[in-house]
Each structure stands twice: as C-alpha cells, then as structure tokens.
Write a protein that binds this DNA or RNA. Structure first.
Length: 889
DNA sequence: CAAAAGACTTGCACCGACAAAA
DNA sequence: TTTTGTCGGTGCAAGTCTTTTG
C-alpha cells in the first residue's frame, strides 16, 4: 500500500509556458553506434518504438491504480497551482550554455507520439507478507524521508537554469550549434543538462495528436480514470524501510561526522542563497542558461503534504506470528533495532531455500560431422559441441576469438588423440538442425501443453522464489544457478567462446540466518561449499564465476524487496543532496581548470566531463576484458580537439556501446585537454595522473558520500524533474504522457542508453512510407474531386472504375482535412520511431530517474501512474508511491 | 598506498506471451 | 487465422565503489 494515494490532484496549470526554446535539439544520430554487438541471428526481432497506441487500456490486466487518486481527491486543489505557475518562468530560453553544446541541429525531432504504452498493470504484487515473525522491528514508515529534504529541497526552487549540459549524443554532426549565451544568469545550477527542450510539445499538444486511432476521446477521459481499483492491492506489505538509515544514509561507516554535518551544511551553504545571487560565481558552467528561474513554489506548496502517510501503518500489521523461526533472533533483533546506526547490518533474520540448479545434461545423440563423417562423442563432449552448434547463426561465428576460445576448451574435453583435430573440419549442422527442430516443436505445442509445462516449472521453483527477511516474505531475484554455456562477452571480449562450466553445489556458498534451517542441497550426495551467517551483506548465495574465478556471481533479493528499495531510495537521496552542493562543486572545478597542479587540473576537467556529459567514472580494466573506457580511462585518441573550442568524443563505453558526441566546451577545458594530450600517443591515457580512486576521494571531500556515479543519477533525475515541470501543459493524460516520454528520451540520450535497431525496423518504416504515399494519393484525388465539385461536376471514377458518390465541396473539404491530419500524424509517428530506434528508454527509468518525481507528477497532473510504470516498476518503486504530490527532486 | 577482494548497481539482448494488424 | 510488433521479464555481462590485504 502505500499508496494511498490520494493525492490530490490538482490542477494543473502550470506552466504554460514553456516554450521557447528553441533550438535545442538533441538528436543523436548514431548510426554507427554500436558496433560491436553481436547480434544474433535472425530470429529475434524486436523493435520497438514507442508509441503504442493503444495503449493501455487494454491489456489484460486491470489496472490498478496506485497511488493516484482516489476519487475523492479530485478536486483540484488550487494550491498547487501556485507552484506551478511559478515555475514557469517565462524566460528561459533554451539555454544552452556555454558549455553545452548543443547538439546539432536536428530539429526534427518530433514530438513523440502518443502514448506509451505501458499499460496498466497493476497490481503489483501481492504477495504477501505474511510471515511472521517477529522481530521485526521495523519501523514503519517510509515517509520519513521526505521530511527532511523537503524543506530543503523546496526551496530551492527549482529552477531553472540549466546548465547546459550537453547532451551527449552522439551525433554525428559535428558541430553543434550552440548557442551560447551566457547570460544572465541566474544560476541555475541545478539544471539539468539538457534542460532545454524543444518545445515540441507545445506543438504537439496543440496539434493533438491523438487521434490516431480511434479516438478515444481523450484518453482517459478527462478525468482520469481513477483507477478504479484499489490500489492497495498493490504493494504488499513490506517492511518499511528503516528510516534510520535513510536519514543517515550513506556514509556508512563514519557516521558522525559526515553525516551530520552534511545535512547541515547543505542547508546552510548551499541552497538558498546560492541560487539567488550567486550564480555568478558559479562557474561558468552554470551560468548559462536559462534564466530565470523561476520557480518557486516552494513555500507554498509545501504545505500540502500532509496527507499521505496513512497507508503504511495499516499495512503493517504483520509480523509477529508465525511459526518457526527462531526466537533467539528476537532478542537480537530487538537490540539491533535501535540500530539505526548499526552500520552495516542488513538483516536480523533471513530464511530461504537456497538455489535451484539446471537439469543435468541429457544427450540427444545427434551426430555431428568431422570431415564429412559422423563422430562419436561422449555426453560431455556432445554437450559442449551443442552449445557451439546452437550459436551457429549468431555473429559470434564471425569472430575468430570466439572459435579459438571454444576450440581450446572443447579440445580439452576431446583429448589430444580424438578424431577431431581442428574446428575447421567440423560440421555442427546436424546438431543445429536438431536444435531448430526442437524449438519448432516447442513452439507448436498447444497452449494447454505450454501451460502445463509452465505450471510444472513453477511448482518446482516456487520454494526458491521467496525468502523471509526479518519476518517479511520477499521475492528472491536470481535463484537459478547459471547453466553451463559458452561465454558471450560483449564487444571484442578476449574470453568470448570459453566454456562456462557447470556450477555444482560444492561451488556455492550460502548465506542465511543463524537460526534458519540450512537449505537442503538439491543434488543428492553433494553439499554446499560453505554456509555463512553474515548479516552485513544482502546476498543469499554466491559462486565463483567460472570464466573469471576471482569474481563472484551473487544471488540477491529481487528489486521489489525492501532491502533493495531502501538502498535505491538512499541512492536518490544522495543525488538530491548533490543538488545542494552542485553549485559550489561546479565553481570549484571551474576554478581548477587552470590550476597549476596537473593532477588538480585533471580532476577538475574529469569532473566537468562527468557532470556535463554524464560519463561514467571509468575504472581500470584488465587485459582479459573488453577494451572499453570511461572518463578516467579515456585515451588521447578518444577525444579530438576541434578549434576553437569543441571536443569530439568517440569511444566505446560500458558494454562496448559507442559514445560519439561533439560538444562545445569552455575554453579553459579545451585548452586543458590539449595539454593533457600533448606529447602522448593516441593510446595513452588522457588523464594520466588520475584514476577513479583519486577522483572519488576528491569528490568525497566536496560532499560526503559523493562519487562519480552520483552525477549521472543527479543529472538524469533533475532533467526529468525540470522537463516535466516546464513541459507539462494542460491537456489530457495522453498529451502529458508524451511530455513524460519526451523527457525520458532526453535522459536516455544524455546517458547514452542505446539499443540495437530492430531487424525489422527498415521494413516497418517502408511500410509506413507506403501508407503515407497511399494517403497522399487519396488526397490528390480528393483535390481533383473538390475542384470538380465546385464546378458542379461529378467526381472521377475511383481506381476500380466505379463512380464515387457525389459530395458537396464542404464534405470533400472535410475529408481532405481529415486525411491531412492522418498523414501528419503518421509522419510524426514515423519520425518518432526513427528517432527512437536506437534509444533505450527503460534503463534510465529503472536506474536513474527518481520514481518520486514521476509519482508526484502523476498525482499533480492526474495521470494514472500505471501509464508510466508497469507492474514490475510499481513493485520496485513501492517505496516511492506515497510521495507528496509537490515533491520536487 | 596499491592491488585484490568483495558487494552491489547498471545495461543490453533475448525470449515468450499477448496483441494488433494483415 | 496468420503475421507482425509490443512489452514485460529474465539472464547475465559489465560497470562502480568499498573494504581488506599486504
């Protein structure tokens, strides 16, 4: 529950404005981008795109509403408006900032189309909680958090500004336009990177999109549908996060100092005033943009909050009860409770059933060929041969490294004297064909058979799916041990193709509560490697990665668990805290762009890049890993200086995803990069005096608990918050959802979240093009008919030679208008589809956007949260559902 | 202090179920 | 009905960052 919801909806009003901005643009062009990926064969497809029209509603499930509102609330309260209004700020212009670059032009962008899909879904889990036990001490509420921050946050104001971060993107276009402006200022710091966004929406709205299909009159009727349902169902009970932690958060160990201090500090220093005047000082960076700021809302708005709480308490019930368990724990727990500080204790009681292993290999007996002749293989040899055969239609087959690694490992199983002496003379086709057949058979099964199979599997796995943590039943994440396979590294991984051997119970270490029964080993005659009772960690089990024996594979609770939810919340709280420090941090690094000490200068420039471009920290990597880089590991050759002050980045980042982006930077940065490159080879480290440890150590001096990745979270969330508050206009839910999607897209672009273009993308596009052409033909015909009708002549025959109905010029006019609208909409849809073909929206939604921003926005604008968050996201973000509608990041 | 260990988050592809379109 | 396209969920690789070791 939590949800409760009620939130009052308020009216919207807001903003209106926006506008402006013009130019900005983001776009990515990527094209080339990912190179490396392997793709696989053809089978899959996927594509995606946004829009789905129809959205939701359908889907089978019923939606649950979650938070949102209950009917009751509805009346908009006026309060809010104030807020909104404030923000709006008229001014703004896009901003760009000096730094920012902007991206190229591509104005095209289009607005996204309609709604997303997401559907309703709803119910989140239900699960249950049941469980018993005591111990729990848990505190309830989660809300706590809000507390503090609020005050703080609000004040801020949001605002404006933007700094411009640059949008990354890849673009090809080198230049970008930037507009620099420098302006006025205010500060803005907080602004997100992109802040700017094109107005597209505006347009859209007006235009209106919708229609497309059927029309549903406004999507939800103007009134939101409230969701009918109860929301409650949704979230289970879970234990509340401990508040303690939240507040404390972060800093693990050393509590004291930092902790406290932080808080205070921030308040003092930062925020408030800064905004106002300070800006100036602000580094250049910030300066930029926007102007104005505006917003404010704060005070007023705030008041509202209250309400929500409720839910939790009720839910809670729980605990106590049940059975088994150990009493002992109780005691313990109790003690701990107080803990707040407990530092690292993650749980008091932990019960689970261990992990489930993949079935033993069953030989199929299909003979592969060697030099055209059938070869006899032992089951072990056949198993590995099959792993390879199954991948015959993937791009890995084009990689010599993959084959070489496979051959080396397989040969060990074959033995030196085996008939098979080399891979080139092997023909795995028979096994491949057999496998395809199996797949086909499976596909052909009737739905009853499939269902039975599924139920069977569920029955076998059920016991492993849940764990009881401090008396609360929680879902386990990955309780299935990874089956043996050939390692599929991404990019040019040196170990691709190696055999990932089967994991046995004797490879697994179990972590469980002291008083909980030790899970029985599922494989007779074997036993766990070790059983630990470490409550300072959250893993339930782990084994060493067969490819990299020094690394581990852990079994954790699912994302919907409170343990994960709690740390997720702490992550966002830390990012929000950065908001209070960002101003001075930017001022500090700007000042250091010209520091005499080279290490200091490198730290400044690296921090700048991490902040502006949302680059990852970039830890050092071993030679036996794919050659990818992050900020600290950028090579001289990854950055090209383009006079007078642009930098072109081109490197392979995480997962070997290419990052290409040309941005305009401040002159001191441009010069510093040139210096760092001086006298080095292309393959040398750009930041030779730096590594992530040094960088993070420095960041921690600026703000307790600050590390490089916090900037990504911060910039992503602040961008969403800003774009939503500036871009949401009055209108129906579908239009608002477009605004959300547009913001989501900008964040994905900033973070460089990509996906491969679906195999059928080209076909889909040409199909759309054909349709548009067809409509254009209709249009032409209508125009002719219109002309004739005006002259009193009957329409021409249609393509089939049949006489068309005689219509009045007015009727034809109307038809023409309708057709035009249809064409425009299709063109918009197409553009959106093209635009998003390489953009992955999910990653940022799952990992970077504070869900409270989304939930609060949904409450404020009466958009059902289910339209934005699917069932698993609702479960994962249960902790954020009762946020105050006025919450601002 | 640097390297190794260890713990946890992030990220893309695949896959299957379910719809929508043909 | 068949095909095409979405979408949620899973799988597991690949990062980040912290803690421990030597």
């Amino acid at each position: 529950m939590a949800v409760q919801a009620s939130t009052t909806p308020k009216l919207v009003n807001n903003f209106d404005d926006d506008d402006d901005d013009g130019p900005v643009i983001f776009k990515r062009t990527n094209t080339a981008s990912r190179q490396n990926q392997v793709n696989q064969e053809v089978k899959k497809q996927s594509s995606s795109t946004l829009n789905g029209q129809n959205s939701n509603a359908q889907k089978g499930k019923t939606p649950v509403p979650s938070s949102r509102a209950s009917p009751v609330k509805s009346p908009p309260v006026s309060l809010k408006p104030s807020t909104s209004s404030a923000k709006v700020s008229p001014v703004r212009s896009p901003v760009k900032s000096p730094l920012t670059s902007s991206k190229p032009l591509s104005p095209l962008y289009d607005r996204l189309k309609r709604s997303p899909q997401q559907n309703a879904s709803a119910a989140v889990k239900e699960e249950v909680n049941i469980i018993k036990d005591s111990n729990g001490l848990k505190i309830e509420d989660e809300d706590s958090e809000d507390d503090k921050p609020l005050s703080a946050r609000l004040k801020g104001n949001a605002n404006n500004a933007n700094k411009g971060l640059i949008t990354p993107k890849r673009d090809s276009s080198p230049v970008s336009k930037v507009n620099v402006k420098s302006p006025p200022e205010d500060s803005d710091d907080e602004i997100p990177l992109s802040s700017r966004f094109p107005k597209s929406y505006g347009g859209t709205s007006g235009g209106k999109p919708f229609d497309s299909n059927e029309k549903k009159p406004l999507a939800n009727g103007g009134l939101i549908i409230k969701d009918k349902q109860q929301k409650s169902s949704a979230v289970p009970v879970k234990r509340p996060l401990d508040k303690a932690s939240s507040s404390a958060l972060s800093s693990a160990k050393k509590p004291k100092v930092s902790g406290t201090s932080d808080v205070k500090v921030k308040q003092v220093t930062v925020k408030p005033e800064q905004k106002a005047g300070d800006d100036d000082h602000i580094p250049i960076a910030q300066r930029i943009k926007k102007s104005a700021a505006s917003d404010n809302k704060s005070s007023i708005t705030k008041t509202t909050k209250v309400t929500k709480t409720v839910s939790t308490s009720s839910k809670k019930i729980n605990k106590k009860s049940k059975k088994v368990m150990k009493n002992s724990q109780y005691s313990k727990s109790t003690k701990m409770l107080p803990s707040s500080g407990d530092g690292q204790k993650k749980w008091t009681t932990l019960v689970h059933n261990g992990v489930i292993f993949p079935p033993a290999y069953t030989p199929h007996g299909v003979k592969m060929l060697y030099k055209g002749k059938q070869v006899e293989l032992s089951p072990e040899q056949e198993e590995v041969a099959t792993m390879f055969a199954v991948m015959l239609d993937t791009d890995y087959m084009q990689k010599p490294k993959f084959k070489e690694n496979f051959w080396n490992d397989w040969r060990k199983l074959l033995g030196r004297n085996h008939v098979i002496q080399n891979l080139d003379n092997c023909d795995f086709k028979p096994i491949y064909d057999w496998h395809q057949e199996q797949k086909e058979k499976k596909k052909q099964m009737t739905s009853e058979e499939k269902k039975a199979l599924k139920e069977d599997k569920l029955k076998q796995e059920e016991k492993y799916m849940w764990a009881i943590v401090d008396g609360v039943k929680e879902k386990v994440g990955n309780f299935r041990v990874e089956p043996p396979a050939l390692f599929r590294g991404r990019g040019e991984h040196p170990k691709m193709g190696k055999l990932k051997k089967r994991i046995l119970p004797s490879d697994i270490t179990i972590n469980i509560g002291k008083d909980a029964p030790i899970p029985e080993c599922p494989i007779p005659g074997e036993s766990w490697k070790e059983v630990k009772h470490d409550n300072t960690v959250t893993w339930l089990a782990f084994w060493n990665d067969p490819i990299n024996p020094k690394e581990f594979k852990y079994v954790f609770l699912a994302a919907s668990s409170s343990l994960k939810g709690q740390s997720d919340k702490e992550k966002y709280e830390k990012a929000r805290k950065l908001k209070d420090y960002i101003h001075s941090i930017r001022a500090a690094y700007t000042k250091d762009f010209t520091a005499k000490d080279i290490t200091r200068r490198q730290i400044a420039v690296a921090t700048y890049l991490i902040d502006k471009l949302a680059l990852r920290a970039g830890n050092e990597k071993d030679d036996d890993e794919a050659d990818t880089v992050g900020c600290c590991t950028l090579k001289v050759g990854n950055v090209e200086c383009i006079p007078p002050n642009k930098l072109k980045f081109d490197f392979l980042g995480k997962d070997s995803i290419q990052y290409v982006n040309t941005v305009e930077v401040e002159l001191p940065v441009y010069k510093a990069i040139g210096q760092f490159q001086g006298g080095k080879k292309q393959s040398h480290d750009l930041f030779d005096k730096l590594d992530t440890a040094k960088l993070n150590a420095h960041l921690k001096e600026l703000m307790p608990g600050l590390t490089a990745k916090v900037f990504r979270t911060y910039n992503a969330s602040i961008t969403l918050d800003e774009m939503l508050s500036r871009g949401t206009k009055q209108g129906d839910a579908a239009e608002k959802i477009l605004v959300y999607q547009h913001a989501n897209k900008e964040v994905a672009i900033i973070c460089n979240h990509q996906r491969t273009v679906s195999k059928t993308h080209g076909a889909q596009m040409s199909r759309l093009t054909d349709k548009i052409e067809e409509l254009k033909g209709v249009l032409k015909e209508l125009r002719v008919d219109l002309d004739r009708a005006k002259k009193g002549k009957p329409p021409l025959k249609d393509s089939d030679g049949k006489q068309k109905r005689n219509l009045t010029p007015e009727a034809i006019d109307k038809k023409i208008a309708q057709t035009n609208v249809k064409i425009e909409k299709m063109e918009r849809d197409m553009k959106t589809k093209e635009d998003l073909k390489t953009v992955a929206l999910g990653t940022s939604k799952i990992n970077y956007l504070d869900p409270r921003i989304t939930v609060a926005w949904c409450k404020r604008h009466e958009v059902p949260i289910e339209k934005i968050f699917n069932k698993s996201l609702l479960a994962k973000f249960a902790w954020a559902m009762d946020v105050d509608p006025e919450f601002r990041f």
